[in-house]
């Protein structure tokens, strides 16, 4: 069964120009896609193509103008309070900008404990222990637990957001460029952690990115998006070969493994 599914989803935003006229700009156009349990799906596309908008629709932060989002077999529009709570617990999201995603006046400990309290009913010592485990799983020390967001580096804060997303034991995590700002050791460490959770707990991922190198490493299926549409869907096997123009443009922009002079020398 699919964990989450988009059926013919579209979305437009009104833009307000200075002269007062408003026009709706289409951002998503007839998008259909599914994520099954234990699957790691990449959503690949250049910036502005609509990836984050689709991610927000999938978790119910915004509503589509047309089409439907399904959680299991139920449309998000039909969820009651318990249904929403279940969605929040089952599907977690990590955003690109960690500073915008946390309460600046909460400590790290409280940020991670929040979903434990309100989605899992965990408090006190039990919650504290879980926070400690979560911090260590993302490679942070207990020493960071009482700090405030502005006292952490961007990479540390992003890992706090990842820990918070892992807190309620979700079945699907949407990673919206969530590792792109980490340095490579940490990116690989996070991907290893995600992979382990996939293996041991059958967690699924929607991995929103523009970095093909990570897609090849981490995902089994890739959706290529261009101007609000999904233009290609390909399984990842060995090295990726795209047939769409956009897929090819994205793979042509991958950074070189070695300096040109070394590649040319055949090293």
């Amino acid at each position: 069964m699919n964990l989450l599914e988009a059926r013919g989803v579209s979305k437009a935003y009104r833009t307000f120009s200075l002269v007062g006229a408003t026009k709706a700009k289409p951002v998503l156009n007839d998008i259909s896609m599914q994520i099954a349990a234990g699957e790691t799906v990449a959503l690949l596309g250049r910036s502005g193509c609509g990836k984050s908008t689709l991610a927000r629709l999938l978790v119910g932060l915004e509503r589509p103008d047309g089409g439907d989002i399904l959680f299991g077999e139920r449309s998000l529009t039909s969820l009651d309070k318990a249904g929403w709570r279940n969605l929040r617990k089952t599907v977690q999201m990590v955003f690109q900008d960690p500073l915008g995603a946390v309460n600046a006046r909460s400590t790290v400990k409280d940020i991670i404990a929040e979903p434990l309290n309100y989605l899992c009913g965990l408090t006190g010592q039990a919650a504290a222990e879980r926070v400690r485990d979560l911090l260590s799983s993302v490679g942070l020390n207990w020493a960071e637990a009482n700090k405030f967001p502005h006292q952490l580096s961007g990479g540390q804060l992003q890992r706090v957001c990842i820990a918070r997303a892992l807190a309620p034991d979700p079945k699907l995590i949407i990673l919206d460029e969530a590792v792109s700002n980490l340095d490579l050791h940490l990116q690989i460490q996070m991907l290893d952690l995600f992979e382990e959770l996939r293996r041991t707990k059958n967690v699924s991922y929607l991995f929103v990115t523009h970095d093909l190198r990570l897609v090849e490493k981490f995902c089994v299926r890739v959706l290529v998006m261009d101007q609000g549409r999904i233009v290609e869907e390909t399984p990842v096997s060995g090295s990726l070969a795209f047939s769409s123009a956009e897929g090819r443009a994205l793979s042509a922009a991958v950074l070189p493994p070695m300096p040109r002079q070394l590649l040319a020398a055949g090293s």
Partner: peptide
């Protein structure tokens, strides 16, 4: 280029 997509980065 850390915040830019691959194509713009290039």
């Amino acid at each position: 280029t850390t915040d830019l997509d691959l194509i713009v980065q290039r």
